[in-house]
Design a protein around this nucleic acid. Structure first.
Ligand SMILES: [Mn+2]
Ligand SMILES: [Mn+2]
Ligand SMILES: [Mn+2]
Ligand SMILES: [Mn+2]
Lengths: 222, 222
DNA sequence: CGTTAAAATTAGTCTTAACTAAAAATAGCT
DNA sequence: AGCTATTTTTAGTTAAGACTAATTTTAACG
């Protein structure tokens, strides 16, 4: 197992790549709350360990080995998020921060026990896919809420787990994964107006961009 | 919260004092698997932080502040041991090693949730008392198995959690806390012969010394 | 195209907590 | 008491991973 610092960097690099964003020095610095110089140091170390490819002044990309290691951490992280929510009733806006600490101390045996206790789940409380033990992740060809046409009815697949205040707000509105909503209007400046459970509400563009949905027609209803 | 290293030292110092053993440099070095020089360094740091009183060449003693900090870690440790055993079915010989890692990442909120989920328990799977949240521990005026007279019937209160192989062996014999047994004979050289669940078995002196019991007559039977 | 602002890297420092090797203190034994 | 073995401490290194300040590279703009 890698050090906690390395695991944290790998997790955040993966989180960026997962959203097709570039893993640059400044982005990592902001996400991990360290200075840019510290990130450059770590980029070099990760490159020396063959976990990333470092293109100076451009950023890093996970190597196959780095991706494998990152998915291991992400699996721990998301399993723990779900376990805390299901087994201990932790609100969904708190599970991410706790999981950031727990993910580093989870042995493979505990991972398996938690996995089994949860019934081999496939998604976190925020709807993010849980990588399998051998390191595969479900594809997510989903669209953001801010890309949709008015009139469409969609189901929420995943929401960003990074902002507790936003998660609390979404929770109040009932905007959890599997919730269905209708797009009332969508405007890049004024935001997205939607109807959920009969209630209309407006979400800013930067919020709507972090909510991923699927057209209801594409989903087989059970 | 203190660093993980400091928490580990405090926990082990407490574990020794709890059994009325002295916390010396060499003992800590053996328990934490570090060199004696490292322990001396840490003793100085702990003394500077007013967590221990360091008498050079004699060892350390927890100060009131050190005891409070140690009990906080021990509470986390024992709550987690019990939680892993109860909620995830982890065998009692494995919970100690896992808890050694988890104890450092447990927030107060998770501590409370685990405490509640377990119904506010008072002892770990090994029978060790769980300190309360405000830092008090039950007294344990118990005797070791190797101090007893033949013919006595006693109830196991606590067993040492430090040796997984021993715990597995005791588990096979049914020698868990609350188990009752009868002393058949007791000899400082040949060990303790006892009868449990109708089966006779012998335990070496160094094993019997780490099993703590109470006379059955002293225990109100529910 | 040249100037400037932003981003990234380099160089050097600091803290934590290990380590080895050498020196000092204590304890045990005749 | 005096010698010896053990224990402890001291002194000096090392590695990880952060930091600041200075420098270099890239991007942006008139
Ligand atoms: Mn998360
Ligand atoms: Mn794993
Ligand atoms: Mn334990
Ligand atoms: Mn606590």
């Amino acid at each position: 197992m890698h050090t906690q610092a390395i695991e944290d960097y790998l997790r955040e690099i993966y989180a960026l790549q997962e959203r097709d964003e570039r893993a640059t020095t400044s982005t990592l610095a902001a996400r991990l709350d360290v200075t840019a110089a510290s990130v450059t140091n770590m980029f070099k170390k990760l490159a020396a360990l063959n976990l990333v490819l470092h293109e100076p002044y451009k950023g890093v990309t996970l190597t196959p080995a780095g991706l494998k290691a990152a998915l291991e951490v992400v699996r721990h992280h998301r399993l723990i998020e779900l376990y805390l929510a299901e087994a201990l009733g932790v609100p969904w806006d708190q599970v991410h921060d706790e999981a950031e600490k727990w993910e580093h101390v989870l042995s493979e045996d505990m991972e398996d026990r938690i996995d089994a206790a949860l019934g081999y789940p496939t998604t976190s409380p925020h709807g993010a896919p849980i990588p399998t033990r051998d390191g595969t992740v479900a594809d997510r060809p989903y669209r953001s809420l801010n890309e949709l046409e008015p009139g469409q009815t969609v189901e929420i697949i995943e929401v960003s787990d990074r902002d507790p205040a936003l998660l609390r707000y979404l929770g109040e509105l009932g905007l959890y994964p599997r919730a269905r909503l209708e797009i009332v209007s969508n405007n890049p400046y004024r935001g997205t107006v939607l109807r959920v459970n009969g209630v209309e509400c407006t979400l800013g563009c930067d919020v709507a961009r972090h909510i991923f949905v699927e057209s209801v027609s594409d989903i087989p209803r059970e």
